[in-house]
Amino acid sequence: MISFSKVSKVYGGAQGVRALDHVDFNVAEGEFVALLGPSGCGKSTLLNLVAGFEKLSEGTMLFDGQAVSRPGPDRGVVFQEASLLPWLTVWDNVVFGPKVQGLMRNEYEPRAHEILKIVGLEAFHKALPVQLSGGMRQRVGIARALVMQPKALLMDEPFGALDAQTRLSMQQLLLEVWQRLKTTVLFVTHDIDEAILLADRVCVMTARPGRITKEIPIDLRRPRSIDDLTNSEFTHFKAQIMAEMRGAHDQH
């Protein structure tokens, strides 16, 4: 579904910053992959390349077999701060995509209602983003991406700005939604627990130059829930990843 081969991204001219350095990376259809690393390691850059927000400097990247030239509704992006349009109601934010794509009302409205129900915001469809809590706003962010029925969901630290409790409930929600829809997900995070809990595979990244140093399959049983955070298998993966990240850090 997503494939990177020898992809580099350099910012600011010839001797600029190498945000990504010869990255080889694949995501299969229906797979949930987490990109894990410290800030500045290029994990968001990688996601932005798939989204079409930025252009790569070297190498080739394919999405669904085709080179990416611009953003589009086949790749639903969930932003860190939700980035809802604040003058539109929850409902208008969710149907913005179908509307500008010129879809028929009777085609997207039932779907939008259903997705709002899934994320638990049915009662709030007339509310404006400022009237919602951070967690609720991010539910709208997820809903507006899902309503387009994207081939992949690209999530850029979507729960990073939320408090610990809200984050847990959002992770639970995402697990349930994914269990239902089985969409391909590329999930960027710096939270080890979050990466293990959600993903089928965790890709550990290091900074300067940005590289994927280790890919760790997480074969925890599905469906998962936030209760898995405390079981022994989970702890085993966590120890493995922490060792990997420490090792990468020591090399610097």
């Binding site: 927000f53 589009g72 509704p73 992006v77 980035s83 349009l85 500008v100 794509q101 507006r144």
Partner: peptide, 8 residues
């Protein structure tokens, strides 16, 4: 970016 992503 969000609008472009949604097909605008």
């Amino acid at each position: 970016r969000a609008a472009l992503m949604m097909g605008a």
